[in-house]
Amino acid sequence: MSADNLNNGDVIIEVKDLHKKFGDLHVLKGINETIKKGEKVSIVGPSGSGKSTFLRCLNLMEEPSGGEIYFERKLLNDKHTDINKHRQKMGMVFQHFNLFNNLTIIDNIMLAPVKIGVKNLRKERKEKVKALSKQIKALQEEKKTLLSELKNLLADAKANNTEYVENVETSDRIKVIDEKLAELIADKKAVKGNIIKNLSGDKKTVKAQAKEKALQLLERIGLSDKADKYPSTLSGGQKQRVAIVRALAMNPDVMLFDEPTSALDPEMVGEVLELIKEVADDGMTMVIVTHEMGFAKEVSTRVLFMDNGNVLEQNTPKEFFENPQNPRLKEFLAKVL
């Protein structure tokens, strides 16, 4: 980790010299980018410019071929990084929605919070037991040394034929240790017993919380009546809105949108953009790959133009669209606007 991003507390994603190759195809050619908390960054550019690949590298859906990606100051493309833990904080929305076809709408939203919640609870418990065992072991060691000390004193007294004087301090300490040990062992037993006995209870609690949150989210997008329906019964716009709240259910710090409206019928684009705008207004940090120039202009705090694996220009939306500098960008905007 470099010193400069340590000083800058606002930085949430930092990309350094990012390269991505698919075989001989060099898709990303050394991208440097810093995204701060609360920013809404739109990425536009022609097809094949690498913008989707860049976005997918941010949560390692694509493994970078070179360079570094930091998320919340942690190097992501490192063997020792637990990527699953970080992905929980990076929601992603896909072009083709990718709702889980075998699960109902509510289960789609609840799956990850429940699975990960239960897993974390188990881990927490295990760690608690481990810590207690460690404490118990340390105390037992101490008791052992103290006891051998006493034994030595007794042996010395016998050998020298002097009277054995009880070391009050040591025996008091042993008494304290014994008491504490009994306490810790009881604690450990209680926690350990809980693991087996209360696991189903824990699961129920986690599930109930996740369900409550999921219902709230569904209410927010006005699809409460679809909770027990399957994704195949939803329209494209509804599917994408569910996909967005599914990502929100994990309370992410960043949301990544990969062309969220490209696969939608024109009449459904509006409802999805509306929801994304709402999420943006709530202060979410967002990176959006999009072809909707009007939307990019309205929602983003910064717009990037990518072409041929490089970021050619970036600016505030107003400057970006009204006063483009790069000839490629001028050409692109002339075509799409």
Binding site: M61, M90, M92, L99, K115, A247
Partner: peptide, 21 residues
């Protein structure tokens, strides 16, 4: 494959995605 990607993007492990989806 989008099903797997969606699952992994939420932070589920490969095993969990396999098992549930």
């Amino acid at each position: 494959y989008g099903q797997t990607e969606a699952g992994r993007s939420l932070g589920l492990s490969g095993m969990q995605v396999y098992q549930s989806i």
